[in-house]
Design a protein around this nucleic acid. Structure first.
Lengths: 106, 106
DNA sequence: TTTATTAATCAACGGTTTTTGATGGGAGGT
DNA sequence: ACCTCCCATCAAAAACCGTTGATTAATAAA
């Protein structure tokens, strides 16, 4: 547990949030811009409580933000989260390709 | 279901593989270079069957490759997968920020 | 051939996540 | 006040995931 644990928990939450078809679909929809829940349920033909659940997961992961307006709840992508995600992937990507036969082990 | 479904299944598998502490730890170890299962079990103090399971998940997601040598099984990062991952994240990141009040819905 | 070593696979269990349908709460309209 | 609309939350059921310990397979050494 060293540098990689910098924020493993957060990484896990992020990737978990992304590891679901419904949630990815939501994110791709939100790429088009802010939308309210009813627009999303319409477009995706999904039960309201189901989307509510998934939107919550996305929100907890920091991937989306919400904003109330009258009776509507508008969700949008968090561009900040996208940066973080990018950094995360970058840190993974720097694979050394060193030959590395470290030693004596087995 | 359009462009976003380009490979939703694959994306889900990728992100799912990344959404686990043990698997992230494995990947970070493999950044140091190719390693055999016993090295990994030693270093991570984990049961062999447990790592075997997680390595399989990583492999199915295309994140690692394996290579047999005698009785040892060597695992390494797939740099190709890292590219794909990066592309995926990129495609998410291009959030238009368009104001987009599309219309009449609710 | 027998034995030891490395690792994959299996089945059972426990825990967590997701789906569903119902209920409740807040905001507006009448 | 009452009714309607949009949405979050809840509880129960279903589906899924990860861990464990045991077994099996493959390789190599004695």
């Amino acid at each position: 547990m060293v540098a990689e644990d910098f924020s493993t928990k957060k990484a896990v939450r992020l990737f978990h949030a992304l590891s679901d078809e419904t949630r990815l679909a939501l994110l791709y929809r939100l790429k088009e811009g802010e939308q309210c829940v009813c627009e999303l349920t319409d477009a995706m033909n999904a039960a309201q409580s189901r989307l509510s659940f998934h939107l919550k997961v996305l929100k907890n992961a920091g991937l989306v933000e919400d904003r109330r307006e009258g009776r509507w709840m508008y969700y949008s992508l968090s561009s900040q989260a996208m940066e973080e995600l990018e950094d995360l992937v970058d840190s993974l990507k720097k694979a050394a390709k060193s030959d590395a036969s470290a030693g004596r082990s087995c």
